[in-house]
Design a protein around this nucleic acid. Structure first.
Lengths: 221, 221
DNA sequence: TATAAAAGTTAGGCAAGTCTAACAATTATT
DNA sequence: AATAATTGTTAGACTTGCCTAACTTTTATA
């Protein structure tokens, strides 16, 4: 039943899981979206979709939207589970900083071993969240979704705490660090500039001005 | 200077490191030897040798013997370092048994990260030997060679201790385990059968008969 | 040393995964 | 509703890494 997937196929399923399952407000995913997400050309993605459909991992009709089958979803979630467990390992055990882990985890997530992931999970004492605040799917593929907002949706006077970061770009994460913002940090919205929607926030008794782009990449409360 | 190598290229360099550097009694390595070691056809290996020569990783002339250049040796030893560190990690931290680690380490050895290997080395407290008793090259690529013999070379009455296993086949390792033989175990040669060179050995006060093939895959003292 | 055996090479082919360029279908806009 | 813009598809080509079959060189042996 369990066919072996190539690294490439795994990356497609992972991307589709992000786009169709983890991103709440998605209105259907097409060839272009997927291509953009994977950094490939639509033509390339189109070919692969035929292959994945053949293998019963995606539902797909010409010119239609793409969804994952049950098997596709399982595989996709499993890759994300591995990715997030490895990130946790790198941070907690090998003292990597949170801006360094993504790239390495992109490789580690493809290691195939029945035992490895679950042993790693046990070694880390069954963590629920990865270093970026994202939930780690459990062995059964269940994901704990939490109520969350973007910081950019808050109003002046609102308070919240940092739950997760949306973007994993190292430059963004280093910047977030520099602001003294770590997962769980308390944030108060002191003001919002009408002109560019930049935000004054209070963190650890220090006040900062952050751009709308930054506020749109921080999940809070 | 540091070109990026494909997994495939890394496997060729690793195999060549084993054949030309770690195997003491090698009289030069040819296309066939390498093909056999990698489980590939000589024609395939021939193609790749041209590519590796082009990249200045091997010294090679048509119909001649293959050796590694300094760069090739460095890369090959680095892969072996990674392999052996990951094996150690799997055994010591994730409680894998020594017959399970090789296959997974074959994948993990290809993870590319400047930081990862050295952090792992530190996390494991700079181990000198992997679970099979093989030396782990240090960060500079230096390998500590130790005086060793095959158990099959000993005579009746000789005593020794198990230093390393030559073969990493899971069936072999499970069998070695079953005999109560772990790295460091004391062994006494009680008798050798003239007919088939099988050996009676004493381990932990139990006597066993092992075939020549087994004795040829155990490094001692 | 002539010949057989072994080892090594070349040529041509295939699958996976990518691309560009040209074309087709769908969706949005006037 | 007609047309423009966007999105999706097809066809053909390239690279990597592998293969088989045929051929050549080297080495071993009679």
């Amino acid at each position: 039943m369990d066919q072996t997937l190539s690294h490439t196929e795994e990356n497609y399923l992972k991307a589709l899981t992000h786009l169709t399952i983890l991103d709440q407000n998605s209105l259907g995913v097409g060839t272009n979206d997927l291509a953009h997400n994977l950094g490939l050309k639509p033509a390339t993605v189109n070919d692969m979709l035929k292959k994945l459909k053949e293998k019963k991992l995606v539902n797909y009709q010409k010119y239609g939207k793409i969804t994952l089958t049950e098997n596709g979803r399982k595989s996709g979630v499993e890759i994300i589970r591995k990715h997030r467990l490895w990130e946790t390992f790198l941070c907690e055990k090998l003292e990597f900083s949170w801006d360094e882990v993504h790239e390495v985890a992109e490789q580690l997530e493809h290691i195939r071993s029945g035992k490895l992931v679950n042993r790693l999970d046990r070694f880390l004492d069954y963590p629920k969240f990865d270093p970026h605040g994202d939930p780690i799917p459990n062995e059964k593929g269940e994901i704990e979704f939490r109520q969350r907002k973007l910081l950019s949706e808050l109003k002046v006077g609102d308070t919240c705490s940092l739950m997760a970061v949306k973007d994993n770009d190292p430059d963004f994460l280093k910047y977030v660090d520099k602001l003294g913002l770590s997962i769980g940090a308390a944030i108060e919205v002191m003001g919002i500039e009408n002109y560019d929607n930049s935000m004054q926030i209070l963190v650890n008794n220090s006040q900062f001005n952050i751009s709308e782009k930054v506020a749109e990449n921080l999940y809070v409360s």
